[in-house]
Nucleic acid binder design. Sequence first.
RNA 1: GCGGGGAUGCCGGAGUGGUCAAACGGGACAGGCUUAGGACCUGUUGGCCUAGCGUCUACGCAGGUUCGAACCCUGCUCCCCGCACCA
Length: 901
Amino acid sequence: MNFKHIDGKWQERWESAKAFKARPAEGKDTFYCLEMYPYPSGSGLHMGHCRNYAIGDAFARYQRMKGKAVLYPMGYDSFGLPAENAAIKHKVSPKDWTDNNIRTMMGQQKALGLSYDWDRMIYSHDPDYYRWNQWIFTKLYEKGLAYRKAALANWCPSCNTVLANEQVHDGKCWRCASDVTQKDMPQWFFRITAYAEELLKDIDTLAWPERVKAMQRNWIGRSEGTRVDFTIKETGETIPVFTTRPDTLWGVMFMVFAPEHPKVMELVKGTAYEKPVREFVTQAVKDRFTRLAEDKEKEGLFIGKHAVNPVNGDVVPIYIANFVLMEYGTGFIMAVPTHDQRDFEFATKFNIPKKIVIQPDEGTMLKSGTMHHAFVDDGKLVDSGPFDGEGNRDAIPKINEWLKEQGKGEAVVQFKLRDWLISRQRYWGTPIPIIHCEACGTVPVPEKDLPVRLPEDVQFTGEGNPLESSASFTKADCPACGKPARRETDTMDTFVDSSWYFLRYCDPKNKELPFGKEASQWMPVSQYIGGIEHAVMHLLYARFFTKALRDLGLIDIDEPFHRLLCQGMVLKDGDAMSKSKGNVVDPNTIVDKYGADTARAFILFAALPEKELEWSDTGVDAVNRFLTKVYRLLEQVDQSNADTAPSPASPETDRQIRSKLHRTIARVTAHMDAFEFSLAIGAMMEFGNALHKVAGQVSSSVWNGCLSDLARLLSPIAPHMAEEMCELLGNSSADATDASTFCSLSPWPVADESKIDHAAEAGETLVDEARKDILNLLGLLKVKPKTITLILADDWKRTLCRFIQQQLTSTRDVGAIMKAAMTDADLKKHGQDVAKLLPKLVASPQKMPAVLLATEDEKKFLELANIGAEFKCDILIEVESQSGHDKRRQAMPGKPALVIA
RNA sequence: GCGGGGAUGCCGGAGUGGUCAAACGGGACAGGCUUAGGACCUGUUGGCCUAGCGUCUACGCAGGUUCGAACCCUGCUCCCCGCACCA
């Protein structure tokens, strides 16, 4: 059944009533639910977006019904290269292209019935937004957290711009997958490394998926080690190395520079080594990424100079090699062939001698001549001056201490994290608010002149930075001295935009500041939802920004996103949906064919949010069938209300369905809290089936109550259907101006435990009184018995044994419980166990009662096994059957009799 | 190599010490309704048989703890993801 006809009706009513306007309220907890804002691409929403929004919207709606003041906003990450590429290709302005895409996407989002507060919309290409990027930039600049530096940078020749380290994946551009090369040019950076320690430490406070936290820890890459100062023999200058193995210092046999190290060319200048070294370096820089593949052969070249080991005066040769990184440590390493596998391979290849400084604690002594690989395990130091004989691990802190005393080095902490390169040589981004003045240097644009707007008189040729083609833009007067100067033409990485947009949502119209105190009411984001692909890009940058903005005094929190959920991918036929594979399912067609609720409910039902979702057309049909079934239940309303149907409503059925209802409420609530939408829907399906079965057999008040609660439970997932149901049931007014009447804003149903017949809901047909009697009996026992034996009639064995066990165990007053579940076949096996265990239990020091559960037949066994004599029970409870057993799944006919012996 | 997450019936996916041959849904099969199809309804869906309050085999593999294990412990295998010559 297609429900599209009800979608529009409710979407209009929600919109005109501003039903989902976020406003903090007295006495209400706030809840900030956020999805990663989308890039407005030319192809509109795809299933991944839909999944993201279906999850977020369901949760936002749920929290709203639970009585929270909910902030649930949407915006567009609308700066970025595709707009510019479209401009080059189709001769449209990036702005028009972007605005057009936003219109399309917003229309699709609205068709899904997402409950955003649309009045808080953010577009990062809006000057009212990006002026605050510029404002923040200048504040960071003042604090020394933004700086310009000439450096070898990652250059994407296809995108014509530099990239941050986080945006190079496997040596390729994260966006276009072109091979990234190196380019030496002045660039703007944010000093994210100033926060490395805190960014690492605070990961522990986050309720994030483990793998994302692990990725961030990995990326930040803290390692504790030692700085050791080596001297170049020929020049006398000192160059530090970083090592995590100062315990191997006495085994250093050679040194290696990263090819890009600035000292290298300096050292070989004018020597015979200059030419070959230059060639090697050029090649290494060119192959920056491929040269680092692990299987890559170790390449190196002696540069004709030597280093002096500060700990023992050894003079060793200096090489350059492809496997040494410039950007980690100091770009200069010490090499110990015997205790590092890479150094071992290199030394073997270049015939460098090896010296052992650690011997294994056990086994044969190592000989450098016969080693086939490096010895990297722990052992005793040898040939290591003052540290001979010590365990190498234990010696490390002592060596650090010793180096420090001697002024030859010290313990240091090293991070893999590099500063964030934010310059982009492209047009469609936030202009960096800097003016280059010959006299004054780099001067930030004063606040009164912000925003620095993107010019319109630019050429999109595909060559170079379009901003440089705009005379009106590049010409500027120096704010400091007033002389003619040149405006910076780099724009900011779009990840700057997304590093604080969640704060702007809290206070989107603020003209004085990027955001005011309002942000503190909502922040941190209670629940953030997005793809895993941002684990070390956006999610790390946003954490850095939050801490930096805190230190600027703008906010008082340390972390932006409290809880994070990374939704899984949407697959079709086992592959990610993609145009190239031709397996894309367009959300529009699903919404058109079935309505938004079916699309949403299927997405939520088909898999848990963080798992991969395999698209299934039959699954969509199945979910639609469920919604249809629920909708058809409404047809019963008229009958019941009219009281014309000769429905023989029975109090027993009323009671049963009410029990089922409250059980369902409890289950759905628990599942919603745990993000288990699929299980919540499953529970509702069960309830829908149960309702269907009793249609016409319950009183209209109970029936309507059930439907009305079901509508509320369904509301976060299928909101249009829920509104429609509530309206038909008469508890929603058609007057759209009164927001309080929406089902979407009505209170979440509360399960009434007292109405739940647990025994019945557990799928059994236990008679309540029997259970109550047993409980009462157990409770009434005044003396604490040492032993209790319950003898159960055979037909009660299955239904009561476990129940009793659970009751007894939960009281924690019971030492042990055992079931003498013996048949002839079991007699031998279990009989011995019972005989063995019982005396132990009786004699147990805890003085807790031992409980033996047995059945009639087993009573005979007890006698047989002669346990009865040994096991003198204080209390014997016999539960006798009143009638013969029944078939499974049928009601037990009567209550068992209790006999106390 | 380092780090993270997994492995349950045809499929998706529940289930963390005893009502578990295992929820719920999908799919399949059989029957009903129907001119037919669809929709809807009912039943079946690990093996065996004397058809049950029966029995055997089962929750990646192998052991262990326990009266009792899909669930706890140990080892192993395999799969997915991230980082990776980080000194």
